[in-house]
Amino acid sequence: MNELKVFIADDEAPARQRLKELLSDVAGELPARVVGEAGNGLEAIERLPGSGARVLLLDIQMPGMGGIEVARHLALLPDPPAVVFVTAHDRHAVEAFELNALDFLLKPVRAARLAAALRKAADAGAPSRERLARASPGAREYFSVAERSRIVLVPVREVVYFKAELKYVTLRTRAGEHLMEEPLVALEREFAEQFVRVHRNCLVARAAIRGFERAGGGDEEPHWNVVLDGIAERLPVSRRLWPVVKELVGEPGP
């Protein structure tokens, strides 16, 4: 029988130790091998892609980045792992977070439940991005881009704008740009506090807006452009959105 390759992410060392003990207890019925461990969310994103893990045992409360956000980023991998969430929350909290739609175990974990959850998750495969997004307690702190077989994280505060072009969305920072597959509408909904729509195809970080200047004349229709912090490029504001965007001039973003 093939060994199931498992990755463990939990910020508490004794909790990781406990899961390893339980895995060896159930080895008779479910042969498994731990192929990697991580002590926080960022480590998990860095180490999991090269580990070959098929199932990820993922703690929900971790410093730096919580488990749900970790799973959302890892879902971009070409061959994402199945995920079993582990939490010390009680049932009420689990219901509040809509975790019921996902596979999860309550701490302390029982060996029999662990084996059943691993088997079920391995059969079902990775959770869908929609289900993960629904279970998220709030907006993400990072955007992620799959580059070859690893995940590149971009902190939300570093993003200057998003621009939709055909199939992709371009994410622009002061340092460079990345291509993402998320629809602009979903980004706008999740990050309504940090970003504002200035054009049908463009979201701009409120904090990056330095001002506006008039443009156009000649052949071009006259309009306003957004002047950005740290980037020479100007972005046109659509006539329809100008009244909303204008309001932001007086109040710098949060």
Partner: peptide, 18 residues
């Protein structure tokens, strides 16, 4: 609060054998 109680119990469980 489950957070403290269950995490503590979990830590104790991990110690019992070692």
């Amino acid at each position: 609060r489950p957070h403290f109680l269950f995490n503590s119990l979990n830590a104790v469980l991990s110690l019992i054998r070692r």
